[in-house]
């Protein structure tokens, strides 16, 4: 880890933490959002920690496992970190599906929070 840029360390730690929580107990994801955070989930928009956690908690599967194919991180000119994740997920007994997710992370009061989150399944995007 020593020679990785700081934004990459922060971004990849966040990504690991996010999917670990999502796959074990996604009702706890409230900790990473704030009241101005935005989520766009398959084109549907939610704003604020409560609305976001309600959406994530109500997703219609009981177990899920994410695996990450690729992740990229960049610093922004406003001292945020932008992370893009491409991966696969398996929900309950459904077939494995590709997904694509973007996070914007901001340091507020010494904690990194997710201010922007966008998620899309890759289902309709095969060549």
């Amino acid at each position: 880890m020593g020679d990785k840029p700081i934004w990459e360390q922060i971004g990849s730690s966040f990504v690991q933490h996010y999917y670990q929580l999502f796959d074990t107990d996604r009702t706890q994801l409230g900790a990473i959002y704030i009241d101005t955070s935005c989520l766009t989930w398959e084109g549907q928009q939610f704003q604020g920690k409560a609305a976001i956690v309600e959406k994530l908690s109500s997703l219609p599967f009981t177990k899920i496992a994410h695996s990450i194919t690729a992740q990229d991180h960049q610093p922004t000119t406003d001292s945020c970190i932008l992370s893009m994740v491409v991966g696969q997920l398996k929900a309950d007994e459904d077939p494995v599906m590709g997904f694509h997710q973007v996070f914007l992370l901001k340091n507020i009061n010494d904690a990194w929070v997710c201010t922007n989150d966008m998620f899309r399944l890759a289902l309709h995007n095969s060549g």
Binding site: T69, D72, V86, Q88, G98, A122, S126
Partner: peptide, 12 residues
């Protein structure tokens, strides 16, 4: 900021 990835290796 601009991030690009092909989806080549991401099929279920």
């Amino acid at each position: 900021n601009d991030v690009f990835r092909l989806a080549l290796h991401n099929f279920g």
